[in-house]
Nucleic acid binder design. Structure first.
Length: 465
RNA sequence: UCCUCGGUAGCUCAAUCGGCAGAGCGGCCGGCUGUUAACCGGUUGGCUGGAGGUUCGAGUCCUCCCCGAGGAGCCA
């Protein structure tokens, strides 16, 4: 555990004072000392004259032992009657015992005093047994107390902090972009419409276009906020509201852009491995795959990817998790899910696929001068079937090309006048990318569904709690 | 929007050809000083998603509706 995580708020022990309130993640520092833990009863085992209380406090879980002969009779009775998720304050001496379960585990508190803050009198819905997805999602507000969910959300917080740390220390400055927008950014996806004092407005699907403006003022920027997609996507990789970080940089071409991405993503993975090892272990994550995530990442031209896919399709290759056959692909088509999975499966690290067909990508992607049917885009595909975690590329700096593209994509020209201004006043080559936080969390935690990567996921047909 | 699967006890599921509504877990009561989703004994549990239909008889068959899960398309 790192000192910065809780160290500054951990109360210092004062001579002659009663037991101090400590956090469970630092329990190892208090072996032999009397401490107070304030939390909730996670689980209990009644052994007659001995009560094993698993107490959690938000930072971990510690086993507390209440032995009949060590406490007042009324206190023992209270311990016997404790119910799951009752809130309580325990005081006792910490000792190391390898038999003790918990997080971090290996330590337990020999309880001398026990106070109940609230005794739960109703049956707690989430018992330590099997539950279905629907039931758990209806109780998401309680489910997040469970250790797996707790671990995932701690990893999420770490990834988000790492995102900010890396960008802030590599010359990227935070530029918050609007969530209420007047028109579609890319014109491709379905947006949530809202009422902006009588005129329609849309929840943002990307801050990129705005950041193409801010880089001309600040050089390197990023926006980081919620993003909304109203597509009726109902798969394990989609949520309606997700968080995306979008760095954008002036005077950066597509190749430099990929270098930034591989440094950035590697930092996120390595930081999580270092600071959240206990959480990843709790999740059963095979970290050997993550340890390999270091620059450089393989780069695959779209042409090569198509050839690879068609060779595999001809050979009858199948793709996990359901051994779905890899269908052949024609040049010009975007990848389907099995294509993406097959390509990613061929590499140990995340892989860049670059130079997608211009027609398959957003209107602003720069054309490759020698091959205008391809564009200077790149997607980053995560290994182990987690799919696209980054979409990015070099943006066109050519006014005439963009005017033609806006027409070709049937976008409302007037809404993009400001954007075209950026090509009239000091247009420069520039690139950027968007990384989806939840897909990254899903990949790093090794989860099979995105719904566990955010405290309260907004899923198709589900907006409770 | 489309395709596939599902909805039975608080939870997870079973119920043969259409023939008495079942189990495990949880909860509750009792026992146990080392439990890890403990173990042992007892006990509690039901408008089978909704409406209509077929039938002597429907959890089971038919029609419509509601809800959920996974996937396609689209994307991060």
């Amino acid at each position: 555990m790192r000192a910065f995580e809780r160290g500054s708020v951990q109360p210092r022990k004062t001579e002659g004072e009663m037991a101090e309130h400590v956090y469970i993640e630092r329990i190892a520092d208090y072996v032999g000392h009397e401490v107070t833990v304030k939390g909730w009863l996670y689980a209990k085992t009644d052994k007659g004259k001995l009560q094993f209380l698993q107490v959690r406090d938000g930072t971990g879980i510690v086993q507390c032992i209440v032995f009949k002969k060590s406490v007042a009779p009324e206190q023992f009775e209270i311990a016997q009657r404790l119910t799951q998720e009752s809130s309580l304050i325990v005081t006792g001496v910490v000792r190391a015992d390898e038999r003790a379960p918990g997080i971090p585990g290996g330590y337990e508190i020999d309880v001398g005093d026990l106070q109940v803050v609230q005794l739960v009198t109703e049956e707690y819905p989430i018992s330590p047994k099997e539950h279905g997805v629907d039931f758990l999602m209806q109780h998401r507000h309680l489910w997040i107390r469970s250790s797996r969910q707790w671990a995932v959300l701690r990893v999420r917080a770490t990834i988000i902090k790492a995102i900010r740390d890396w960008l802030d220390s590599h010359g990227f400055i935070l530029m918050d972009t609007p969530i209420l927008t007047p028109a579609a950014c890319e014109g491709t996806t379905t947006l949530f419409e809202t009422n902006y004092h009588g005129t329609p407005a849309y929840l943002s699907q990307s801050g990129q276009l705005y950041n193409e403006a801010t880089i001309m003022a600040f050089g390197r920027v990023y926006c980081f906020g919620p993003t909304f997609r109203a597509e009726k996507s109902k798969t394990r990789r989609h949520i309606q509201e997700f968080w995306m970080v979008e760095p954008e940089a002036a005077y950066v071409d597509m190749w430099q852009n990929m270098e930034i991405q591989e440094q950035f993503v590697s930092y996120l993975v390595q930081t999580t491995l270092q600071t959240r090892a206990a959480e990843l272990k709790l999740l059963g994550r095979d970290v050997s795959r993550l340890e390999k995530v270091e620059p450089p990442f393989p780069r695959l031209h779209y042409d090569e990817a198509v050839a690879m896919i068609n060779k595999a399709a001809a050979a009858g290759a199948v793709v996990p998790p359901n051994d779905e056959p890899v269908p052949p692909i024609s040049w010009g088509d975007d990848f389907g899910a099995p294509h993406e999975t097959y390509v990613a499966e061929q590499f140990e690290k995340p892989v860049f696929v670059h130079h997608y067909p211009t027609a398959a990508k957003a209107f602003y992607m720069a054309q490759e001068p020698d091959r205008p049917e391809t564009c200077r885009s790149s997607d980053l595909l995560a290994p182990e079937g987690y799919g696209e975690i980054i979409g990015g590329g070099e943006r066109s700096s050519d006014l005439a090309f963009l005017e033609a593209q806006i027409e070709r994509h049937r976008l409302p020209r007037e809404a993009y006048e400001w954007y075209l201004d950026l090509r009239r006043f000091g247009s420069v080559p520039h690139s950027g990318f968007g990384l989806g936080v939840e897909r990254t969390v899903m990949w790093i935690c090794g989860l099979n569904h995105i719904r566990e990567t955010i405290p309260f996921p907004r899923l198709l047909g589900r907006i409770y709690p």
